[in-house]
Design a protein around this nucleic acid. Structure first.
Lengths: 146, 146
DNA sequence: TTTTATAATGCAACTTAGTTGCATTTGCAA
DNA sequence: TTGCAAATGCAACTAAGTTGCATTATAAAA
């Protein structure tokens, strides 16, 4: 159920994606895309920084994350930890529901596949545009090690 | 539909609440409770700081917010702005659903009353404990002034 | 293949939210 | 009224994220 994609040639795939989006193919970007494709859960700045083979500058990494989000390659998630996390795929828009699971124990954020149905009511005059859902609890790993 | 409570004697009410929770009745705390009771939407640190009659120290305010949250007088909300916001009432727990409306235009956060029903599935091994929902769109004020 | 314009990077300095340690003050119960 | 724990105020700090600018690399044109 988790986002997962360990394709053989994710490097070539990354290059194609970058071209499609009109972005230059830099080493960092290709590596980032590859990493997002194989990541089992949402990645913080620190996760990403550590995952990159070469030492990356903070602003370069943040700027790429912003760019990737703009073009819809990734989306960002704000859980209760105060640290933004990023995962592959565009942000949910126009009524789409997108659920994230945040582990209370290890703080890991997982993207949930499959739409979660939601019924809600908003007060008069309010115009809802999209809905984000955060499910908190224990992830499979932390649950099994209790 | 919004949280709202402009009772006449919220000061006395605040004192009772503090006593109940075993907290000392300081001027700041009483004023904070009063403010949370009359607030139409979730309050950031800055909102609160400005709303207090006397100049409050940053750490004192943050510490009181943490204490209030611990005892269930308020709950905190993390939207996409990176700034934590606080509103009256305990955090949602054990399966309860609690929806917040975040205005895309003015970034104001409103607490939605009334349970929003949610159907979701989590992967094998995951144990959900509570669900938070953030609805994004335009609030009544921003919608009417477009 | 070389040139060139533009986009991306790296660095340093900055901003803003939130935290921590510690000395001083205040609420409240004995 | 006195004593003590809890609350406050201050200063210094941390950590996330941003910005300006000079340098470098990508990719398209010559």
């Amino acid at each position: 159920m988790l986002v997962q994609n360990q394709g053989k040639n994710t490097e070539a795939l990354g290059k194609v994606l970058l071209k499609e989006k009109g972005l230059k193919q830099t080493q960092l970007r290709i590596e980032l895309i590859k990493h997002f494709n194989s990541a089992m859960h949402a990645q913080s700045y620190t996760d990403l920084k550590q995952a990159m083979v070469k030492d990356v500058d903070k602003s370069t990494l943040y700027r790429n994350l912003a760019t990737f989000e703009e073009v819809g390659l990734i989306h960002s998630i704000n859980d209760h930890s105060g640290v933004t996390k990023y995962a592959k795929g565009a942000s949910p828009n126009s009524g789409q529901s997108h659920a994230h699971f945040v582990c209370d124990s290890c703080e890991t954020v997982y993207c949930m596949k499959g739409k979660s149905e939601l019924k809600y009511e908003v007060p008069q005059g309010f115009t809802p545009r999209n809905v984000q859902t955060i499910i908190r609890g224990n992830c499979a790993h932390c649950e099994s090690s209790r």
